[in-house]
């Protein structure tokens, strides 16, 4: 068990280094010039050069990369020679645009992304798995057809479309929900949990509609497959009631692929719901990342990319562990 975790931890570190290197290279060898982007309105070649030195972009590629990476291990100094400022550990650099500490930026953005992720995951898991199971149990009957039909519409609805329609209907026409506010980022804040729910309900719905449609499909097909397994016939032959056949024997076996999918999706969502945050103007990680990438803000983009990669890698380890807990056949001896 410990050997397994250590090995996964090592692989995780290696992967993160690879991701950081690729992102860094893409930025470095890409067409964008962060120095001219950072020097503001009245730019002279002189001032661009100054900015370049201040940002450390005049140094060779590997020096830049290693300097950046050293921030993960110890505090470092940032800025033009003579005008350096300290950046405490863990140092992810300072924004080229605002000179803000990236670690602080992420700490500010993360709660927004978490708020969106938590509600969306709960909603789509309940709707997707529940309806998928219902459809599988009523296979071929009216309920199944309606659910499957709804799901095929759902999977073809992109988040920008659902998001805008939801905004238009509930905020624009019906006025039953507020427009998303940037002051609420936690259910424990001053506004209270109910305001938090109302604030994020539309983003949750936009994500959940798409994802529950996918979860309905996967759950349904897995459950139908499981219902045809020999052990389900054995459960009937024992004289068990339908409820325990379906839930105790069927769901436990049929749900494992859904658990894998859920883990990976949560991991992905924590890196920032890019489209949703854009449409609802929520300043989460996705929103920040898009803004940083388009303005050539290397430290911010790097940090969010690596954080997203980190979440996905952690999710895959957690999925493996959960899988082993569910299925004794993959358990570690």
């Amino acid at each position: 068990m410990i050997a397994f975790l250590l090995r996964r931890l090592g692989a995780m570190l290696l992967l993160l280094i690879v991701v950081s290197f690729i992102t860094f290279s893409l930025f470095h060898f890409g067409p964008a010039d962060p120095a001219s982007a950072a020097c503001g309105q009245e730019c002279t070649p002189d001032r661009v050069e100054q900015a370049r030195i201040a940002l450390g972009l005049d140094k060779p590629f590997f020096v830049q990369y290693l300097t950046y990476m050293s921030g993960f291990i110890m505090p470092r100094m940032i800025g033009a020679p003579g005008a350096e400022s300290a950046c405490a550990w863990p140092c992810l650099g300072k924004s080229f645009q605002t000179n803000e500490n990236v670690t602080d930026m992420i700490a500010n953005a993360l709660p927004f992304t978490l708020s969106i992720a938590i509600g969306a995951v709960v909603l789509w898991t309940i709707a997707g798995v529940g309806l998928g199971l219902l459809a599988a149990m009523r296979k071929g009957k009216a309920a199944d057809r309606i659910i499957v039909g709804g799901a095929s519409v759902g999977v073809s609805l992109p988040i920008p479309v659902t998001g805008l329609v939801l905004l238009l209907v509930f905020v624009g026409i019906l006025h039953v929900l507020p427009f998303t506010s940037n002051s609420i980022n936690s259910p424990f804040g001053a506004a209270g949990p109910w305001a938090w729910v109302l604030n994020y309900l539309l983003p949750w719905l936009a994500i959940a509609i798409l994802f529950s449609a996918q979860y309905i499909r996967v759950t349904r097909s897995n459950m139908i497959e499981t219902f045809n397994e020999d052990f389900m016939r054995t459960a009937r032959a024992k004289g068990l009631a339908r409820r325990s056949i379906v839930f105790k024997h069927g769901v436990r076996a049929g749900i494992t692929p859904v658990v894998t999918m859920l883990g990976m999706d949560i991991g992905g969502l924590l890196g920032g719901a890019v489209l949703t945050e854009q449409i609802f103007s929520v300043p989460g990680l996705g929103f920040t990342a898009v803004h940083a990438a388009t303005s050539g803000d290397l430290p911010v983009t790097m940090a969010i990319t690596m954080l997203a990669a980190f979440f996905i890698i952690v999710a895959s380890v957690v999925v493996d562990l959960v899988y082993a807990a569910i299925d004794p056949r993959v358990r570690i001896n």
Partner: peptide
């Protein structure tokens, strides 16, 4: 199960793996 018991051809697939 109570009055009529049944056993199947492939016990690996006929028993619940979990």
């Amino acid at each position: 199960g109570k009055k009529i018991g049944m056993i199947f051809q492939d016990p690996l697939s006929a028993m619940h793996p979990f």
